[in-house]
Amino acid sequence: MIRYIARRIGHGAVMLFGISIFLFLLLQAAPGEFLSDLKLNSQISPETIVGLRAQYGLDQPLPVRYWKWVESSAKGEFGYSFAYNVPASTLLWPRARNTLLLSLPAVLLSWLIAVPLGVLVAGSKWRWVDRLFSAGTSTLLALPDVLIALLALLIALKTGLFPVGGMTSIGAQEQSIWAWLCDLAWHMALPVAALVVGLLAMILRHVRASVGEVLESSYMRAAEGHGLSRFKLLFRYALPAAANPLISLFGLSVALLLSISLLIEVVMSWPGIGPLLLESILSRDLFVVIGAVMLSTVFLILGNLLGDILLYAFDPRIRRQA
């Protein structure tokens, strides 16, 4: 088991390394840099710009810049933000925490809703449940994520029950911990709901499909023939047998959720990685872009690692192969 996980982590490290090189090359190929806008300003002399380029290290060849970034990453700084004049990490860490604050509850909530509901729909004997389910999930799948976010904003505006954006109310920090937490939860409610709505339909469909397939199998009929209760049949016999593809999906859903959450953060002005990434791309703040993408990659790798570990724990056949 430990060797299995160690190997997975090794794969992850290699992947991070590869992605970092790829990112450097890609951003190098993109036109313009942080200082490009200054060139348009006639008041700034070309000499100043050359000086600034040297100061930021932009005049160095790509391998040297990459090596410097690796060095600074080893120190935990992940390069330097041109726009804010601070190490990239001081920008990234709080943002990453905020993003996790949204996406972790959203992932958990979607799965906690989708699994029991999907199993029940798969096990239902009534046709109208099936029809309702298909219609409902198709509608949800067809809704673009931006529209969901905008709808959530509209609800906040019209009802006034929820804040329109941001993470905390002004002055919330000065209150007691409890009041601050309540305030945070109140701000989280809409973005998390939007994320769950964006993810739920896909997971539900997969749960129903894989459980439905298992329900057709002969071992389920055999178990039914032994007089087991409906609940036990569905949740103890069918669900674990259907879990394999779902666990793989779990890792993927983390990745998918991150991309949805970047969008929803921007629309609902949640101070996560999303708005930071957008802003730094627009201002060509190189190392912040790289840091933000690398962080997303780390989340993705961790999500998949968690999926692999769960798979190992759930499926005796995989245990044997590993």
Partner: peptide, 25 residues
């Protein structure tokens, strides 16, 4: 009533032994 009867009064062995048992339990 069927649940009470199945397994306790009347039991079934089905066709494919390889497929009659749940693979993950």
């Amino acid at each position: 009533q069927l649940r009470k009867m199945r397994g306790a009064e009347v039991a079934l062995i089905s066709q494919e032994p390889a497929l009659a048992l749940n693979p993950v339990l």
